[in-house]
Design a protein around this nucleic acid. Structure first.
Length: 634
DNA sequence: ACGGCTCGGACA
DNA sequence: TTGTCCGAG
């Protein structure tokens, strides 16, 4: 349900940029002969010509729609070019479009806060840039207005005049405009420049909306498409919303919007104005009620998040009708495929963005053998995410089995799976500051290991080392603490560390000295002194597979475990089968090896395992517990 | 045989 | 926190 956010005091300049039929444009760049032609991108050509996921404007003129089948599109538009989405591992592979989207984000993020809203959309907060322009170089004469900006559509500006562009030019540099409108005008100019840059540097066109908040910017970004932008001055907001059908508003395209129409007789946003905030709250709860009341008045306080990358990675596939999966073997086969792709994407996120995902989730749709409409849903399941294709596959299968067990409820019926997906989420940056640690990687007779923070990507010619990252599963308090080099394995360890609860800031603590590096590795590998041995012991160390323990136990271990990503194949890009991620459960580590560590490191380790804030004292553990082992001696 | 494949957010 | 549901494109 939508929630209202506090409205910032100062007027903001917000833009929503939306790529025009993006997948089609990506394909047109690859195959220029498709430019200007009716074209659509389809996935899976085998059944009824595949499903359309993007349609060029030339094809839209024929009535071709997203969600049509390829065959239907051919019927209404015989000349249409249908381009297939690349297929890898038996499923659609959208990576081509993802990376094209990144190209665009890289440009659009240059003028202010930028939020990647989807593969082909971003929000920009251009407030500062617009203010800056107003101070430094405000638009002053109509002739001087940048050509693309002059093509803007200004909501509420009379356009029956004939010479629209002249009016726009005049509006953009109006001297008598109020401060807010001047800011918007500057925003429009900046966005026009950005859009031109996007076109020049990527060959992609886009459309945009410029307004004082995200909601309004989003509403109008698609109003004039393709390759145009639209501005919403405050003075035009009420009229604009008054006649806007509720279903057009973001968040009201579904059941909530239908309920407004059916239950309250509200057809336009303007109709909402006749309801008090209290009445709306009665109908839809406090949060949604307030939200509705505000959007009716054009108020939306939602901030533009500073985020250029997705928050999760998911891979899924459906198995409709006869394709449904009916036994463990076929499920395993497909999960393996999905996990291969997921692993690849995780590896490249780690490589390019220095990020690590912490949670693996499995979703499925299922029906029970004979039952028509199975009421029961297949439960989603998650577990700590371990890097490496093999680990992901193993864990995903266990999650599936766990979900299936719950789904079947100990009945012995046949089942069939109609969709599967695996999702990696809770993605964290590997904390910067590693470079200050890297000197410890540099052994007496070797060169420094690749720097994480200094180089945007790891050079191809780096010898494949075993770079080990350790991060805490719980919360975001994480800081690199030490690294080591041993036996030719380059090992970088990032340890969990607690930070003051209320402080957003991290307070890095550097270790002045790192000794006994072999002990560190032993500590981490529970007595195995090399990474190779560690690999063999891995199964023991990560005793906690998904779905194999009680809920309580699982939660406990999830909260306290430490996870490591082995990046051994990042550089070589080779053999995935030897790529591993290691999870270290504190409870499984032999305390005796800790005693060999220098006191500094012992103290550091204490920091890792300090119990979570409201840790239950009643939790039972096996053998000697770490917390008792590490309890303050005094 | 459902549009498929992704994503994000709110809620209990 | 996990799992569910909704909504977007």
């Amino acid at each position: 349900m939508p929630v209202a956010r506090p409205e910032p005091q100062e007027p903001r300049v917000i833009a929503h940029v939306d790529m025009d039929c993006f997948y089609v444009q990506v394909e047109q760049r690859r195959s220029p002969e498709l430019r200007g032609q009716p074209t659509a991108v389809v996935q899976y050509n085998d059944w009824k010509g595949g499903g359309l996921i993007a349609v060029s404007y030339e094809a839209r003129k024929f009535g071709v729609k997203r969600s049509m089948r390829g065959d239907d599109a051919k019927r209404v538009c015989p000349g249409i070019n249908l381009v297939q989405v690349p297929v890898a591992r038996g499923k659609a592979d959208l990576n081509l479009y993802r990376s094209a989207g990144s190209e665009v984000v890289a440009i659009l993020s240059s003028k202010g806060k930028c939020e990647r809203a989807s593969i082909d959309e971003v929000y920009l907060d251009l407030t500062d840039a617009a203010k800056e322009m107003l101070l430094q170089a405000p638009p002053d004469s109509p002739e001087q207005i940048f050509e693309e900006a002059a093509k803007s559509n200004i909501l509420g500006l009379p356009s029956d005049d004939g010479d629209k562009e002249k009016n726009v030019r005049a509006w953009l540099c109006r001297v008598d405009a109020d401060y807010q409108d001047k800011l918007l005008a500057c925003g429009a100019i900046i966005v026009a420049q950005l859009r031109v840059r996007v076109l020049e540097e990527t060959q992609f066109t886009c459309s945009a909306g410029i307004a004082h908040n995200k909601m309004l910017a989003k509403l109008v970004s698609g109003m004039h498409k393709p390759a145009q932008q639209t501005v919403v001055p405050s003075s035009s907001v009420q009229d604009f919303l008054a006649s806007l059908p509720v279903k057009k508003m973001k968040q009201l395209g579904g059941k909530l919007g239908s309920s407004l129409q059916d239950d309250l007789g509200v057809d336009t946003i303007g109709d909402l104005l006749s309801f008090t905030e209290e009445k709306l709250q009665e109908c839809y709860g406090v949060n949604t009620g307030t939200w509705l009341w505000k959007i009716a008045r054009g108020i939306s306080g939602e901030e533009v998040e500073d985020r250029l990358l997705p928050k999760s990675h998911g891979c899924g596939k459906t198995f409709p009708g006869p394709k449904a999966l009916k036994n463990n073997t076929s499920v395993k086969g497909w999960l393996d495929q999905l996990c291969e792709e997921l692993s690849e994407r995780l590896q490249s996120d780690l490589n390019q963005n220095k990020r690590i995902a912490q949670t693996l989730t499995l979703h499925a749709r299922a029906s029970k053998g004979n039952e028509r409409d199975s009421v029961k849903k297949f439960p989603s399941k998650s577990c700590p995410l371990r890097y490496g294709t093999g680990k992901l596959q193993e864990d995903a299968m266990k999650l599936f089995e766990s979900g299936l067990h719950d789904f079947l409820d100990s009945q012995n019926t046949k089942w069939s799976i109609t969709s599967l997906s695996v999702i990696a989420s809770k993605i964290f940056d590997i904390p910067s500051g590693t470079s200050s640690i890297l000197k410890y990687i540099k052994g007496p007779n070797s060169t420094a290991a690749p720097s994480l923070s200094d180089s945007s990507s790891i050079p191809e010619d780096q010898p494949p080392g075993n770079n080990l990252y350790v991060t805490p599963i719980h919360e975001e308090q994480c800081e690199p603490s030490f690294s080591e080099k041993e036996d030719g394995d380059s090992v970088s360890v990032i340890s969990a560390k607690q930070y003051p609860a209320n402080e957003g800031k991290r307070t890095p603590k550097k270790l002045s000295e790192v000794k006994g590096t072999s002990s560190i590795l032993k500590f981490l590998s529970r007595g195995q002194s090399t990474i190779h041995e560690k690999r063999k012991a891995d199964g023991l160390i990560c005793s906690q597979g998904p779905g194999s323990s009680s809920q309580a136990n699982k939660a406990e271990e999830h909260g306290r475990s430490i996870q490591a990503a082995d990046r051994s194949n990042i550089n070589s890009g080779g053999d995935q089968s030897t790529s591993n991620t290691w999870m270290f459960n504190i409870e499984d580590i032999d305390p005796s090896v800790v005693e060999e560590l220098p006191p500094e490191i012992q103290r550091e380790i204490q920091g890792w395992i300090r119990p979570p804030k409201q840790a239950s004292t009643s939790t039972k553990r096996r053998g000697s517990t770490i917390s008792s082992y590490f309890a303050p001696k005094n």
